[in-house]
C-alpha cells in the first residue's frame, strides 16, 4: 500500500546519466536514452496515480473489513462461550475463556486479512502455488482485474 518506488527513480536516472557521461560524444544515443527514461518515468507516474486513485475509495471498504474481522472473532467467541455455559452449566467460566480466545482469533483474522500471517500451516504453500495473488490479502482495493 505504501510507496516503495520513489527510492528507485533517482537511482536509475543517475545510473543512466553516468553511463551516458562515459560516452559523451554520442549525442543521439543520449537524447534517445533521455527520451526513453522520460517515457518510463511518465508511465510509472501514471501507473502510480492510477494506483492511488484506486486506493482512495477502497479505504472505507478496508476499514470495515478489518473492523468486521476483529469484531466477528470476539462475537463468535462470546457466543460459543455462552452456548457452552448454557449447555454445561459452567457459568461464567466458558464465557470468560471463549471471549479471550475469540479476541485472539479476531487478532489472527486481522493479521490474516492484512496478509501479515499466512493461512494455517501448509495453506501458506498452497496459496503461494496458486499464482500467489490469492493468499491472505483478500480485497484490498478493486484488485488486479478492476
Amino acid at each position: 500500500m505504501i510507496e516503495r518506488s520513489p527510492g528507485r527513480d533517482p537511482e536509475t536516472s543517475e545510473a543512466d546519466l553516468s553511463a551516458a557521461a562515459r560516452t559523451p560524444t554520442d549525442e543521439a544515443a543520449l537524447a534517445a536514452r533521455l527520451e526513453r527514461l522520460g517515457g518510463t518515468l511518465e508511465a510509472r507516474r501514471a501507473a502510480e496515480e492510477a494506483e492511488n486513485a484506486k486506493a482512495r475509495p477502497a479505504g472505507f471498504a478496508q476499514a470495515t473489513k478489518i473492523a468486521s474481522e476483529f469484531v466477528a472473532g470476539v462475537i463468535v467467541g462470546g457466543g460459543l462461550g455462552w452456548v457452552i455455559d448454557r449447555a454445561l452449566g459452567t457459568t461464567p467460566w466458558a464465557l470468560i475463556v471463549f471471549v479471550l480466545l475469540g479476541f485472539a482469533a479476531g487478532v489472527l483474522n486481522v493479521l490474516r486479512a492484512e496478509g501479515v500471517v499466512a493461512g494455517a500451516g501448509t495453506r501458506l504453500r498452497e496459496a503461494g502455488k496458486n499464482s500467489g495473488s490469492a493468499s491472505g490479502r483478500s480485497d484490498e482495493g478493486p484488485g488486479p482485474t478492476a
Partner: peptide, 16 residues
C-alpha cells in the same frame, strides 16, 4: 485486550 476485559465484565453481568 484491556478493553476486552471490560467488555467481558459487561457480558458476565448480562448473561452469566
Amino acid at each position: 485486550a484491556l478493553g476486552i476485559f471490560s467488555l467481558l465484565v459487561a457480558l458476565i453481568l448480562l448473561f452469566a
